[in-house]
Amino acid sequence: MVKKYVAAITSLNGDKIGTHPTGEATFTVDDETLMVEITMDHTSPNTQHWMHFHGFPDGKDAQPATIAQDTNGDGYVDLAETEPVSGTTMVPFNDKPEKMDIPTDTYPTSDANGHFHYKKEVPLAEISHKFKEVFNDDDLHLEKRVIYIHGVPESMELPDTIQGAVGKYDQHTTLPIAVGKIKSAD
C-alpha cells in the first residue's frame, strides 16, 4: 500500500534574513522505500541548507514554530525555541537519511537564485530500524511531524542570542528559515 504525505513550506525568520523561502515537500511510502522530494525557492543563494523532520518521540503532534516562539525577544526563532512546539530533530534530508547523521556537509546547496531540488529514495527497512534504535519506534509517523529548512550565509550578521550550535556548525547553519506541517495526502 502506498501512502503519500505533503508539506507546504513557508518562511520563518524571513523579515530578519531578507528573503522569504517557500517550497513543498512530498513523502511517498511504499513497502520498501520512502521517497522524499523537496523543492525550495527564495532561500539564501549559494548556501547549504540543512533539512530535517522534527517531532516528539512520545507521539505528540508537532506544530510549526511561529514568531510567538521567540521567547528571548531577539526577533529570531532559533532552533532551541522551536522545540516546545516542534520537538526534536529526527531525520535529516542529506545524502543518507537512513543513517540519521544530522551534522554533515551533505545537504543540498541552493543556486544563485536561491532554488534547490532534493530527491532521495530511502530504504524503508533501514530508516525504520535506525529510527527504532534512536527513538524506540519503527513508525516514522509522518503525519505528526514538521519539516524545517535551515541555513543562512556565514557572512550574515546574527545576534549572539541565537542558539543552535551543533558541533562545529554555528547558528548560520542551524537557523530555521522555513517550516511546514507534514499532512497525509490520501
Rank of each mutant, 00 (worst) to 15 (best):
M1P: 05
V2N: 14
K3L: 00
K3I: 00
K4S: 10
Y5G: 09
A7E: 10
A8R: 07
T10Y: 09
S11Y: 10
L12V: 00
K16V: 02
G18R: 05
G18Y: 07
T19C: 04
T19A: 03
H20A: 03
H20C: 00
P21D: 09
G23S: 04
A25T: 08
A25W: 06
T33I: 07
L34D: 04
V36M: 03
E37V: 00
I38P: 08
H42W: 06
T43S: 09
T43P: 06
T43R: 13
W50Y: 08
M51E: 10
F53N: 11
G55D: 15
F56G: 12
F56W: 10
G59K: 03
K60V: 02
D61E: 15
D61H: 14
D61G: 08
Q63G: 00
Q63A: 07
P64H: 04
P64G: 12
P64F: 05
T66R: 07
I67S: 15
A68H: 05
D70C: 08
T71E: 10
N72A: 09
D74F: 01
Y76R: 14
L79N: 02
L79W: 12
E81S: 07
E83A: 14
E83W: 08
E83G: 02
P84K: 14
V85F: 09
V85R: 05
V85Y: 05
S86R: 11
T88M: 04
T88Q: 09
T89W: 13
M90L: 12
N94C: 11
N94T: 04
N94H: 03
P97G: 13
P97D: 13
D101W: 01
I102P: 02
T104G: 03
D105Q: 02
Y107W: 11
T109C: 13
S110G: 10
S110H: 07
A112V: 15
N113H: 09
G114D: 12
G114Y: 12
H115Y: 14
H117W: 01
Y118I: 06
Y118C: 10
E121Q: 14
E121C: 02
V122I: 11
P123G: 15
P123A: 15
L124P: 01
A125G: 13
E126R: 11
I127K: 03
I127D: 07
H129E: 12
F131C: 10
F131L: 13
F131T: 15
K132A: 13
V134R: 11
F135E: 07
F135W: 13
N136F: 10
D138A: 15
D138H: 13
D138M: 09
L140A: 13
L140C: 04
L142R: 06
K144P: 01
I147L: 14
Y148H: 11
Y148P: 01
H150V: 00
H150S: 01
V152H: 03
P153L: 06
E154P: 01
S155N: 01
S155Q: 00
L158A: 04
L158Y: 01
D160R: 12
T161K: 10
T161G: 12
T161I: 11
I162V: 08
Q163P: 01
G164Y: 08
A165N: 10
V166S: 08
G167C: 06
D170G: 04
H172I: 03
T173N: 12
T174L: 05
T174Q: 08
L175M: 07
L175D: 05
L175T: 12
P176M: 15
A178F: 01
V179E: 11
K181C: 03
I182V: 14
I182R: 02
A185C: 09
A185I: 04
D186Y: 00
